[in-house]
Amino acid sequence: MIAHEFAYERPTTLEEATRVLTEHSGSVRLLAGGTDLVAWLRDDAVAPDLVVDIKAIPGLDTIELDGDELHVGSLVTFTDLIESEVVAEHAPLLIEMAETVASPGIRNRATMVGNICSAVPSCDAGPVLMAYDTTVHLIGPGGARSVSIDDWFIGLRETACSDDEVVTHLTLALRPHGGVYVKLMRYGGEDLAQAAVGIVEYPGHEYRVAFGAVAPTPIRAHRIEEVLRGKPLGEEVIADAVALVRDEISPITDMRATAEYRARMCEVMLERGLAASHERLEGAGPAYGTRLI
């Protein structure tokens, strides 16, 4: 039961949506899958005057491959990703990540864009989208604009999206790659990440590394990428990268884990993840979806 009362709008075009958002700016919330928003409403964590449901806007629920770009609409659910052949072939890391998000009954509703809009530190999509050089596309009263995923997360539950904007889709820059998403959880069942790392290795010894749940936002590990750049992976190179983990992350101690455990596990996850993503690049290694920890 939600004690707080609010109005509800279901626009059928993006123009109508941005108009409604502009009119109610400041006390409005967008509703897509609702798996975060409805829970927050129930918990009194948010209390908007208006909830704008964007599910009736056509065209936001598609996954399209366009040359070496993959477009993922803002209404695409985690289940859609898992069941997409295009994603399986071109961006399998999205599936490896999506399969760690909650459970099927949540993934059938929850959207990947909603995940990065909620922008909690443990946001699963964050590290993987960073590793895939993603661009976020928005539309607002001033028209369309795009933001790099690296500039997307501003702070805890804070993003580059302003109150009167709607995310339309994401664009992932695709190249041949091997990748991993390694997520530390308290047990085998669904859990929020205690810590996580998304890694992609591109041919030519180019790497992307991003961490989740060890800073107020998902973070790209530029120093680690730098130390790896141009080097073939070997024990020594991996050790150099692992040695930088504590410089990159700023984990806290909370109910889910201590800062120390988070840090040590980021080291373990990076070590195992780099090895696995390299094997996958070479067409070997554990199948996508295999848990490395």
Partner: peptide
């Protein structure tokens, strides 16, 4: 009590 919910008081799932 800091974890009065199944998000942070974990009880076994079918995987556990």
């Amino acid at each position: 009590l800091m974890n009065p919910n199944f998000t942070d008081y974990k009880i076994p799932t079918s995987f556990d």
